[in-house]
Design a binder for these strands. Structure first.
Length: 546
RNA sequence: GGCCCGUUGGUCAAGAGGUCAAGACGACGCCCUUUCACGGCGUAAUCAUGGGUUCAAUUCCCGUACGGGUCACCA
């Protein structure tokens, strides 16, 4: 076979060489241990947790004065969705992920571009041509049906799947045969001519898993698709080499194709990046675990957390606790620190798939929000409401001070309340304050019978004085309690239940329900202060008449 | 089916050849408390399994089981 003739036949327009690109994309001038990494989503319009998960590469890069960039893997035109690039950038920006270079909404920045793979066609073809020149790649004219048939044969023969050995029918054709097919205009793909032996194991150092041993690749996989666009495998190798990527962080599902990636790096004489294969996020399905699925699990989509209104920092904290086992400890020691101040390390990453735990996310979010100022909560809630609950946003803007006061109840001090972890929960929790959304919940239990109820509430209204301090107010509540035959201290009642109608718990509970419509609400006196005297009296009266 | 990865309490997990096997979430119990919360304290695990190496293994090696992943001109 005349490789030069074949190369020119296949790529008549390619005149550049690999050296030209080596010169165009020089080694980066960075500190010795600087990490250069990226996220490389395909623009399918679906931004998922995994994208954010892998974006922790940003921490690694910026911790080491390295570079973090965004590359768009748009080699599959069929799956491409309009606006998908914007969606990725928007989502990442929302979570504070900062790109140093790569694709932007209106173009790109950086000296290693283009950062959209389809625009790098010439580069891939140049590398492909060099491979043909070396006798390491050849055209294959198989149709989809041919390949299907091959697969069926292999299945029947219980042979391994793949294009190799006797199944590689275009591997050793003559130049004349190839010319003839080309002349007919038959579509072709470019395949890698693998000399790999499945008996050989190659050791690859994984940044997370340590040494991984994989079987050498023996299949003649596709480098260039029939439209001249590379497959993921080929594009990954070319791009990460020429973009001078030092670390490739990706999901463990790529472990299966690692052999072909290292084979390409090695044969091209390029230094392999440090591969970091992250464990897949799982979910409980019945009694078994399974991979989070795009179709079945809404929580896989990043938009889910935004809609539910989990603060960005809370989501990042949750992700960090899953990603780095020592993060939680660090967070407890530095409760008010920004999660970005944490030093992330690869070797603290888990290698087994973890279950996504929404309850824990909620806990972390509550912890986080409980420590923020009322103003912070107000601003965050308002921003969220503008998008997802416009009626609330309007009310908040009309009564900003009122809402701030409501949010401020139980805030501050050593033991702040933890009533909500997301803006959605906050909206629901705060609803009882505003007269416009206040309602008695159906499930309100009666802790006092009708007669006692009106007796307690009547006396409460009679003695209520907004000039009182909290102590004075409570002293009066106690008086009412005792006057009506209830124990002022729950302990007393517990000891001798027969002596009382109940305890002060019943009285305060009644007041709480009358005032808030529910059993779970902050301190009664504080709530009254926020509601104001008129509204307080109105609600108590209304509850009496219920 | 081939190949790869994984397996410590309900969940997330630390850990090292010799530990009473951390911690967090959740659950439950107790305490604090005028209420709702917060908070404090406490309870629950023989590290999937069989075999080997070793004075000693949950920690190292091999097999098995189970779980997951992957075998496209998708990434």
């Amino acid at each position: 076979m005349n490789n030069t003739a074949l190369a020119n036949l296949l790529f008549p327009d390619i005149t550049k060489t690999i050296e030209d690109y080596e010169a165009k994309y020089p080694e980066r001038n960075l500190p010795e241990n600087a990490v250069v990494t990226r996220i490389a989503p395909s623009p399918t319009g679906f931004v998922h947790l995994g994208n954010l998960y892998n974006a922790i590469g940003e921490r690694l890069a910026h911790q080491t004065q390295g570079v973090f960039y965004l590359r768009i893997e748009d080699t599959d035109q069929k799956r491409e969705v309009e606006g998908a690039v914007e969606a990725v950038i928007d989502a990442m920006t929302f979570y504070g992920i900062r790109f140093d270079e790569g694709a932007t909404t209106d173009g790109e920045v950086g000296a290693y571009g283009p950062y959209r793979q389809r625009q790098r066609k010439e580069l891939y073809q140049t590398v492909a041509k060099s491979l043909v020149l070396r006798g390491l790649a050849y055209p294959c004219f198989c149709t989809e049906d041919d390949l299907k048939e091959m697969h069926d044969q292999q299945e029947a023969a219980k042979d391994n799947y793949g294009y190799f050995g006797k199944y590689a029918i275009w591997r050793d054709r003559t130049l004349e045969e190839i010319e003839a097919e080309l002349a007919k205009g038959t579509e072709w793909v470019l395949r890698f001519r693998s000399e790999g032996d499945p008996e050989n194991m190659v050791a690859v150092k994984d940044g997370i898993r340590g040494e991984v041993k994989v079987q050498e690749n023996y299949t003649d996989f596709v480098l260039l698709k029939s439209d001249g666009i590379p497959t993921y495998h080929f594009a990954h190798v070319c791009d990460d080499h020429f973009m001078r990527t030092t670390h490739v962080i990706r999901d463990e599902s790529w472990l299966a194709t690692l052999p072909i990636h290292v084979q390409l790096f090695d044969i091209l004489g390029w230094q392999r990046p440090v591969y970091c294969h992250t464990a897949t996020l799982m979910k409980m399905d019945g009694t078994s675990k399974r991979k989070l699925s795009k179709r079945k699990d809404p929580e896989l989509a990043l938009s889910y957390y935004r809609e539910a209104g989990f603060p960005q920092e809370a989501v990042m904290r949750y992700l960090m606790t899953v990603l780095n086992s020592n993060f939680e400890e660090w967070m407890m020691e530095n409760p008010d620190a920004d999660s970005r101040a944490f030093t992330f390390s690869l070797d603290k990453m888990s290698t087994s798939g973890s279950l996504f735990d929404l309850e824990k996310l909620d806990h972390i979010a509550k912890e986080f929000l409980s420590r923020q100022t009322a103003q912070y909560v107000y601003d965050g809630l308002l921003e969220w409401a503008k998008k997802y609950d416009t009626a609330l946003a309007e009310r908040m803007e009309n009564k900003a001070e009122f809402f701030c006061n409501a949010i401020n109840v139980g805030r501050g001090g050593d033991k702040p309340r933890k009533d909500f972890g997301s803006w959605k929960e906050a909206a629901a929790f705060l609803a009882f304050y505003d007269a416009e959304t206040f309602a008695y919940e159906d499930a309100c239990p009666e802790r006092a019978d009708g007669e006692m109820r009106s007796a307690i509430l009547t006396q409460y209204l009679d003695t209520l004085n907004f000039a009182d301090t909290q102590e004075e107010w409570f002293a009066k509540v106690k008086q009412i309690t005792e006057a009506l035959g209830y124990a002022a201290q729950p302990k007393k009642y517990k000891k001798n239940p027969e002596l009382y109608k109940g305890s002060i718990v019943d009285v305060t509970n009644l007041l709480r329900v009358a005032l808030t419509g529910r059993q779970n609400a902050p301190d009664i006196w504080e709530i009254s202060r926020v509601l104001g005297e008129t509204e307080t009296r109105r609600r108590v009266q209304a509850y009496m008449n219920l």
